[in-house]
């Protein structure tokens, strides 16, 4: 299972590197995510990346068979996240969290919070048993 995932990731990176004539990704596009679905990503935070273009929360969760799955949850840029109360201290390694987000269409363990704004409905986030949003 892990081997397959590793191979898949490696293959994707290789394809990306081969496609040197085109940029590999365009931020702000949500086309790679299934906007009709919500996945609850549950696990332990391993890293919190507070940079442009988008903030990332990395966490280790478990699949149905108990195998560790390395998740990445994508937010928006730090300025947009600050507008909905996130800070560079919102998550820290070791935090136990649950985040509702849109899953990647390709089934990889990547999820996206989508549009964030002070007026938009917020996704459910629980940090160490406390409801954050």
């Amino acid at each position: 299972m892990m081997k397959t995932n590793k191979c898949r990731t490696l293959c994707i990176v290789i394809v990306g590197l081969l496609a040197v004539s085109v940029p590999v990704f365009a931020h702000h596009g949500g086309a790679s995510y299934d906007t009709s679905k919500t996945v609850t990503v549950k696990g332990t935070v391993t890293e919190y990346i507070w940079t442009n273009p988008h903030v990332l929360v990395k966490l280790d969760g478990k699949d149905d068979s108990g195998n560790t799955v390395h998740w990445v949850v994508e937010g928006q840029n730090p300025v947009s996240m600050m507008a909905i109360s996130w800070t560079k201290n919102t998550f820290k390694p070791g935090d136990e969290v649950e985040i509702d987000a849109m899953p990647a269409k390709n089934g990889n363990p990547v999820a996206f919070l989508g549009t964030v704004s002070p007026t938009a409905p917020r996704k459910r986030i629980v940090i160490n048993g406390k409801q954050f949003q």
């Binding site: 994707i12 990704f25 931020h27 273009p53 994508e74 990647a104 990889n108």
Partner: peptide, 22 residues
């Protein structure tokens, strides 16, 4: 709100490539 090429490359590595459509 500044775009850093290094941060962008890292973002592409962490997320962009992982969500490429099949």
């Amino acid at each position: 709100l500044i775009c850093s090429p290094v941060d962008m490359a890292e973002y592409n590595r962490q997320v962009g490539n992982a969500v490429l459509p099949p």
